[in-house]
Design a protein around this nucleic acid. Structure first.
Lengths: 342, 342
DNA sequence: ATGAAAGCGCTAACAG
DNA sequence: CTGTTAGCGCTTTCAT
């Protein structure tokens, strides 16, 4: 089926393409009679202007690229939803770029998005979460950002001046640790993620700091490294339970890990929170779906998304924006934690 | 920063744009020396061809629209992931269109995707899951499909001949029901979704059929209607528990509902599966995250996605494809169900 | 092996 | 109020 163009409409209406364009965009007054004649033809032929042609000319596509490491991880759909919600009505459409955390794919997408002339890019996960990222990987993003508005979500690329919006994860971990201590816990373990990852490292640092401030020691064996998955949580909790002394509380780098930890603990015959307090991080929907409901540090994913879009939008509009937008974490006490009564 | 074009490269290299285009696309032999000269310029200026211009000409964008009702529902990211996985390497990029199940937004996106000249559309949720959909809503999709390859996932629009890939949900429900009966259950309740929805109605029909085939009655009060959410599951289980007689098993329209049901049951002091068997549907990751792990009917979401893409791709390539692709459901027995021993 | 030129479908001056 | 025309950046004959 051949695409009908503005020319077809114009000639059939006996006017010029300019006139049709005018009624399409309401960009100049058109005599009511010709306008309605054109409108009728448009309806009749189901004419829809070709956005490519328009974008080519206007140098804007109304399209934004969203790069995520894994759309299957509920964290990202929540953020996406926040972006979408905020953008709704502003007429943007989103390319969803799933990278599986592979830097190679991130590079590809950065490339593709530029070719496709997106108006902006929101970048999450992968290389921007590394404690040390290679100069080439950094440079690539910086170069893209020099041409296209770009904002980093929950990440950073030291040495660059990129715009970013991020949860204060250190603060969140500190809050959780403080809470645990106030509840009487002294022997607390931390189940971390990969140590190469800022999201894990920041929390660990905050955890240790607060412990030390309270004159509590963090022996080496109380920090276990996993990979953010439920399986890691299961495995590491198993390790914890196998040790001669068992901590009274376990702080986890994220909710998945915490859920895995809880499962293993329960299967081992413990009662949560009676025998052990377990705290997560993120507050993904899963956290409140399990039983016992998880005490966790909430990242406001929707806020992360909507703020990211707001910043990006200002960048696109060439308005002034501050470099860093911080989203406050929030401790959500539910059922997996309790006060330690000796 | 002004975009550098093929003209800039051409003039700087002292050749015509045609030659540059040829090295870009490897579409005709170019003398090695000029080729490398051009290549160097391309690297140097970080030149990237404008995909809009190319697409305008070629009439293909390498872009596909994916319409989902709610990206926050883990079912859809799983399907998306399947699509993405299958499409990887074929060089497609995806517009993710989140409709919140609003028909109005579905219409908008159908419109937008056409304007943006996507090569194809994958449609899930919303109007295609209605037991009766208004003719206008049907027509709109049919009209789009007449111009752009389109496939329906887990849905249908009676009266049209659209391509679709879908799980045999009726069969899944039948399998689950049969399993329950074989396990000795006689008094089984079904927690449904909205009755206006095919995904709920099909399962209910299958449930009743299998019950009847086994000479079992399904009294009215054993079918409860909710809205697919965890809250509905909680509320309806509450209702079930409040009644004088309690079923020995509950079949749920989806996993969310089942999880809600389990939570309420546990809070009411029941032990699952000892006091009651609960079965879900879908097998989203949540199903195996909770404790006890959920017995459920697995929809192979990744298959749904990859098959949908395969069908769409053939449609795009104008190859022959069969109208309907069925994905087989699979009963996954885990911990929330048990044999009824009198 | 390379260049000239004609569009792809649309918008935006510029002229009436 | 409306038409003419020059591109937007690229690909693709058709020549050379």
């Amino acid at each position: 089926m051949k695409q009908v163009t503005i020319y077809d409409i114009a000639s059939e209406a006996g006017v010029s393409v300019a006139t049709v364009s005018r009624v399409l965009n309401n960009t100049a007054p058109v005599k009511a009679s010709t306008r309605s004649k054109i409108m009728k033809l448009i309806k009749q032929h189901q004419f829809q202007p070709n956005a490519l042609a328009r974008s080519l000319l206007k140098k804007e596509t109304g399209t934004i690229g969203v790069i995520v490491p894994d759309i299957t991880n509920p964290f990202f759909p929540e953020v996406f939803s926040g972006i979408d919600h905020e953008a709704r009505g502003k007429g943007f459409t989103f390319f969803l770029c799933n990278t599986h955390g592979e830097y190679e794919r991130e590079s590809q997408y950065l490339h593709i998005l530029r070719e496709k002339q997106v108006d902006g890019i929101i970048f999450m996960g992968g290389r921007i979460n590394l404690t040390k990222c290679t100069p080439e990987l950094v440079e690539e993003v910086a170069e893209t950002a020099a041409r296209i508005p770009l904002v980093l979500v929950n990440g950073n690329l030291p040495g660059t001046e990129l715009h970013r919006v991020a949860t204060d994860e250190g603060k969140g971990a500190a809050m959780a640790t403080q809470y645990l201590i106030e509840q009487g816990h002294r022997d607390i373990a931390y189940i971390a993620g990969m140590s190469t990852t800022t999201t894990s490292a920041q929390k660990l640092r905050a955890f240790k700091r607060v412990m030390n401030q309270n004159n509590l020691d963090v022996p080496k064996e109380r920090v276990l490294y996993g990979d953010f998955t439920m399986e890691a949580g299961e495995r590491l909790m198993d390790e914890i339970l196998r040790a001669p002394e068992r901590p009274t509380a376990v702080l986890c780098v994220n909710d998945f890990t915490a859920v895995g930890a809880i499962k293993t603990a329960i299967k081992a015959g413990l009662s949560i929170p009676n025998d052990m307090t377990i705290v997560g991080f993120d507050d993904i929907p899963l956290a409140s779906s399990i039983f016992p409901e998880l005490t966790t540090v909430k990242q406001q994913m929707d806020q992360l998304g909507s703020q990211a879009f707001q910043v990006l939008h200002k960048l696109i509009m060439k308005e002034k924006v501050k470099r860093l937008t911080v989203i406050e974490p929030e401790l959500v006490v539910r059922e997996s934690s309790r006060e330690l009564t000796p």
